[in-house]
């Protein structure tokens, strides 16, 4: 399958998914770590892709949603942002209801 189709399938089949460096259990980058921690704190199940373990996705994800950096968080197939935006939504109390609504719909 083409890498863009693979990414599309991943973001459409998972209500909440993070593309990150490392895993939520063993993050390899501070930005990825903080973002995964914010998702975990919302107590909503989420999928993850370790971009360091998938060079094809690492190389092509930036042009999928025209977003140049990692991590990237998708909710209901839409990019909500990277570390700074996810944390800001979390601190404003907007992240948890957003994730809950997405997984309730799935």
């Amino acid at each position: 399958m083409d890498v863009m189709d693979r990414i599309k399938e991943q973001v459409e089949n998972n209500p909440v998914i993070i593309y990150m460096k490392g895993t939520p259990q063993m993050p390899m980058c501070g930005f990825s770590s903080r973002t995964a921690e914010a998702l975990k704190a919302c107590n909503v199940e989420f999928a993850h892709v370790n971009v360091l373990a998938d060079p094809e996705i690492f190389q092509n994800l930036p042009r999928f949603a025209n977003w140049p950096t990692f991590p990237q968080v998708y909710v209901n197939g839409e990019l909500i942002g990277g570390c700074d935006i996810t944390l800001e939504l979390f601190q404003k109390g907007e992240l948890k209801p957003m994730l809950e609504a997405a997984s309730a719909k799935a």
Partner: peptide, 11 residues
């Protein structure tokens, strides 16, 4: 503005 996170090595 918030502080940035520490590195963790970047793989």
């Amino acid at each position: 503005a918030p502080l940035s996170p520490p590195c963790l090595g970047g793989g």
